[in-house]
């Protein structure tokens, strides 16, 4: 950050012939370029070591057998039977818990954004930040105490003859997991979509109304189309968050629900037949593929939805 020394050097060459001045100037520029690169080097190295290498390792081991030879057996195993089911369930769960919380979060964020109480807005902003990172064991306990077979909401509902367990609900199942995921997915959506709502100008609302549009038609023709790219982006994030989630599903169902991350955990915890360790890596690789396909789909829809942005 100390440019004074360099400036001094440059000053000293003044009066020398132009060629050498230019050479010094280009030297200074190159030096500055190097220094700038050096300033972000720690970050780049860190990300490479902490993110790049592990990803490469996962891909590498996905295609090797336990002896270290290259093979396609792992990848072919995960496209069949229980592992395929794990992927199907994971994708379904992620889709459910990104679209539904996406709309719920949008509605909630809109209710907050239009409220006139700055206290409420600040409080919910903080709460969303915390809840969005919430999950795992704490969440599991809270929901067991709420909707477990002896939970308080269960007993309240049982008192009005609506015991959810008698109506086919099971907290420790796929849909139970989906319901619990709302607890962090909705706040995550609120967090992501609030800035986009702020960009929705009141003038658009008024101009539409002035031109004869009802509230419903404003949302149909302007509000939702304008928000759509942001909503879609938010839902993608939710999809990723839900697809990747392990802790909540693992602790809630003790690893019994068939989801891709849970299967990885089981394989890694040694609950697998020996010789199958590398299947976990293949599942990891499969998850990358699913995420990559999702991103590409997202990119395609986004291009169509936001052509007015370009």
């Amino acid at each position: 950050m100390s440019e004074s020394g360099l400036a001094g050097d440059a000053d000293a060459t003044r009066g020398a012939d132009e060629l050498s001045a230019a050479r010094v100037a280009s030297g200074v520029r190159r030096w500055r370029g190097l220094r700038r690169a050096a300033a972000v080097t720690p970050f780049i190295v860190y990300v490479f070591l902490g993110l790049g290498i592990p990803i490469l390792a996962v891909i590498d081991y996905a295609f090797r057998n336990p002896k270290g030879h290259l093979t396609l057996a792992n990848v072919s195993t995960i496209t069949h039977g229980t592992y395929l089911l794990g992927f199907e369930n994971s994708i379904l769960l992620a889709a459910l818990t990104s679209v539904i919380p996406g709309f719920l979060g949008l509605t909630l964020a809109y209710a907050i954004a239009t409220s006139r109480s700055p206290f409420l807005r600040r409080m919910i902003a903080t709460a969303s930040g915390v809840l969005a990172n919430f999950g795992g064991i704490n969440l599991t306990f809270m929901f067991i105490a709420t909707l477990g077979s002896t939970g308080i909401l269960t007993s309240w509902l049982a008192a009005i003859h609506l015991n959810p367990w008698n109506l086919g609900f099971n907290l420790y199942s796929f849909y139970g997991v989906a319901f619990v995921y709302l607890y962090f997915q909705v706040p995550l959506m609120v967090l992501v979509i609030t800035p986009a709502l702020g960009a929705l100008r009141p003038a658009w609302r008024e101009a539409a109304s002035n031109l004869g549009a009802s509230t419903w038609r404003f949302w149909r023709h302007i509000g939702l189309p304008v928000l759509f790219p942001s909503v879609l982006g938010g839902m993608l994030l939710l999809f990723g968050s839900s697809f990747a989630a392990y802790a909540t599903a693992e602790t809630l169902t003790a690893g019994t629900v068939t989801l891709a991350p849970i299967q990885i955990g089981n394989l890694l915890n040694g609950n697998a037949i020996s010789g199958q360790e590398n299947i976990g890596y293949a599942i990891g690789f499969g998850m990358f593929v699913v995420l990559a396909v999702t991103m590409i789909l997202y990119g395609l829809i986004q291009r169509r939805a936001s052509k007015w942005l370009r």
Binding site: R201, A203, W204, E206, A207, A208, S209, N210, L211, G212, A213, S214, H221, I222, P225, V226, W308, L309
Partner: peptide
């Protein structure tokens, strides 16, 4: 209500709907 008043209004700025030509 505003939508039935038949009054054309021009706002300060940025009131065009961004998603329409």
């Amino acid at each position: 209500s505003p939508q039935d008043r038949d009054m054309g209004m021009v706002f300060q700025s940025y009131s065009l709907f961004p998603n329409m030509s």
